[in-house]
Design a protein around this nucleic acid. Structure first.
Length: 293
DNA sequence: CGTCTTTGACCTGCGC
DNA sequence: GCGCAGGTCAAAGACG
């Protein structure tokens, strides 16, 4: 892929990346009962300018009824390898001071706290620095995909050039500063764009109804799992412990279809995902162990 | 009663 | 400086 700037969709204008050199990473998506994620190569191509070194990937249907599928394969991500290490950009002490412990609300960018207007306490804070963000383009009829964490919706805004509003969620864990945005693509209403920002500092809170996280992936591989789909997946996917060695591993949580350039930053941000230990949830699969607390 | 969603107001950043 | 768009707050209401 050549060097280029890519901004393809007004709705996803945050997905901007300057590309300098290629790398390849694996991705896997799971779709179960039309509630969770699959991916569409053309979408990734459209949104990110990515090339796939493997054309549309095998689609398995454990139930034979079209309600479930596992999509695996690899995607070539073009980008500056120097920014692939999330540590380099997201864990510095200069990051947003979001962990004001008492309220768990942190310092918002929208409201600051040094002067008072209309009864609301305001304060001048440091310039906003976004944390690492990860975007997922998924096909789903529902907007808010279950990912094993609990989220509180704190806002919704209409988006320019899109008939669909964008929803803002924050992790309900008071010590966790992770946020996510959910919006439906204006060009393809069947797709949902979920953008995660930050890193969970805790484990998942329960068994998800939809999306399978690495945590759940581990559990579904356990002998106690009885779901037909899960049993099928168990037979198809590598056992936990096998997956850390091969770069071409297609284990489920090795999720890689997500790269978000921070449009507020001059530096492009590209991240590849290597899945790690269990019990980390979705972002745990994304974020390297050293990033976590 | 605790949790979550809705929604208008307010703030910041950016382009012109 | 101004206006626009995106992001967040927080009060009010809904819900279990």
């Amino acid at each position: 892929m050549d060097d280029h700037n890519h901004t393809s969709d007004p709705v996803t204008d945050q997905f901007t990346a300057n590309v300098t050199s290629p790398l390849t990473a694996d991705y896997s998506f799971l779709e179960i009962n039309n509630t969770t994620t699959t991916t569409d190569n053309s979408l990734l191509t459209d949104h990110f300018g990515w090339n796939f070194d493997q054309s549309p990937v095998p689609e398995l249907d454990p139930n034979g009824d079209g309600t479930s599928s596992v999509v695996t394969g690899s995607v070539e991500i073009a980008g500056d390898l120097s920014v692939l290490n999330p540590l380099a950009s997201s864990s510095s002490s200069d990051d947003r001071p979001e962990s004001s412990a008492a309220s768990g609300e942190g310092v918002s960018s929208g409201k600051t706290m040094s002067l008072e207007t209309g009864g609301k306490i305001k304060k001048k804070g440091p310039k906003r620095i976004r944390q690492q963000r990860f975007a997922f383009v998924t096909k789903s009829e529902i907007d808010h995909l279950e990912d094993g964490y609990r989220w509180r919706k704190y806002g919704q805004k209409a988006v320019k050039n899109s008939p669909f509003p964008r929803s803002y969620y924050r992790c309900t864990n008071s010590k966790c500063t992770v946020k996510k945005r959910v919006e439906r693509s204006s060009t393809d209403p069947t797709t949902v764009i979920t953008t995660y920002e930050g890193q969970h500092c805790h484990h998942t809170v329960g068994f998800p109804r939809g999306l399978i996280t690495h945590h759940d992936y581990t559990r579904l591989l356990a002998p106690s799992s009885t779901s037909q789909q899960f049993n099928y997946l168990r037979s198809q996917l590598p056992q936990v412990g096998d997956h850390g060695t091969s770069q071409s591993s297609q284990s489920l949580p090795q999720l890689v279809s997500s790269v978000v350039g921070d449009h507020l930053s001059n530096e492009q941000t590209l991240t590849s995902f290597q899945h790690s230990s269990a019990d980390q949830g979705l972002l745990g699969d994304i974020v390297s162990p050293t990033m976590r607390n």
